[in-house]
């Protein structure tokens, strides 16, 4: 790692102040992706602003419209055990990484990083969540802008994520055998206004909504409604773990299984 300083502010306001003090400063949440990146010397921040000491962005609650609101510095383990109102979300969190990673990694860190194979982007997009930052609310549909790219501006910190709770939902992940990240992960959620299907791991553009599947499932929420639907392999990630065609195939399989699991 290159040399850098670490600051541990205790309020969001202080964190933002520290963050904007230099363009070379960078926020640090759970660090489960950032620290390995730093070890490879792929990043060289001047100061890391640790967000894990800010109590105001930790914890899970429910807002007046029934949404589950999760502080950005809440760990995957805390979501797994504390988001019981949204079982599909809790289940997703309970299978991110491994137990030790789940004790450090945070929802805010995951969404800010927007790894194309991460699980949380599928949940956020599949739920139509709202990503709340220190300065604004961003709809999930506007937030994800391609792999490792988000709507976040420099100096902007995620503080909270608000998830509307669906009638039914499930997440199905087919793991890449080495990293155990999603080779393909599909989050399906049925709301009063329709069904959302979000896919992670597959596309070169990062997490995306599969609109044909959403339309089919909105009129008939059953695996059979998906029959004949498929995605093209073009534009899907192709690597040593699977071709674009394979990933496209898995999206269909995982979507069917998610619908079945959602019941």
């Amino acid at each position: 790692m290159y040399a850098f300083d670490i600051e541990r502010p205790t309020t969001v306001a202080d964190a933002v102040k520290l963050l904007v003090a230099s363009e070379e400063n960078q926020p640090l949440s759970g660090g489960q992706t950032l620290i390995p990146t730093l070890k490879q010397r792929l990043a060289s921040p001047e100061t890391l602003i640790s967000l894990t000491g800010i109590d105001e962005i930790k914890g899970i609650c429910e807002d007046d419209s029934g949404r589950i609101c999760i502080g950005a510095a809440t760990t995957h383990a805390e979501v797994a055990s504390g988001a019981g109102k949204y079982p599909a979300l809790a289940a997703l969190a309970s299978h991110i990484g491994d137990p030790a990673v789940r004790n450090r990694g945070t929802i805010g860190g995951s969404l800010a990083n927007n790894d194309p194979s991460a699980c949380y982007p599928a949940a956020a997009l599949g739920s139509g969540a709202v990503i709340v930052t220190n300065s604004r609310d961003i709809a999930a549909d506007d937030y994800f802008q391609g792999m490792f790219t988000t709507a976040l501006e420099p100096g902007e910190i995620i503080t909270e994520v608000k998830f509307p709770v669906p009638q039914k939902a499930a997440y199905m992940k087919f793991e890449q055998p080495a990293s155990r990240f999603a080779l393909v992960g599909v989050f399906v959620a049925q709301y009063e206004g329709g069904v959302r299907v979000a896919v992670t791991g597959a596309s070169e553009e990062g997490v995306f909504r599969w609109s044909e599947a959403e339309a089919a499932l909105s009129s008939d929420f059953s695996a059979s409604a998906l029959e004949g639907l498929s995605l093209p392999g073009d534009g899907m990630i192709s690597d040593m773990h699977g071709s674009g065609d394979y990933r496209a195939h898995l999206v269909a399989v995982m979507t069917r299984r998610a619908v079945t699991a959602a019941g």
């Binding site: 670490i6 541990r8 640090l28 660090g31 489960q32 620290i35 390995p36 890391l48 640790s50 894990t52 000491g53 383990a77 491994d98 137990p99 030790a100 990673v101 004790n103 450090r104 990293s179």
Partner: peptide
Amino acid sequence: QCGACVVHVNGKAVKSCTMFAAE
């Protein structure tokens, strides 16, 4: 990934190679 470095911090298992001492 390997977990040879797992310790408990405040009662929770963490990978001590993926946490700064300052934290």
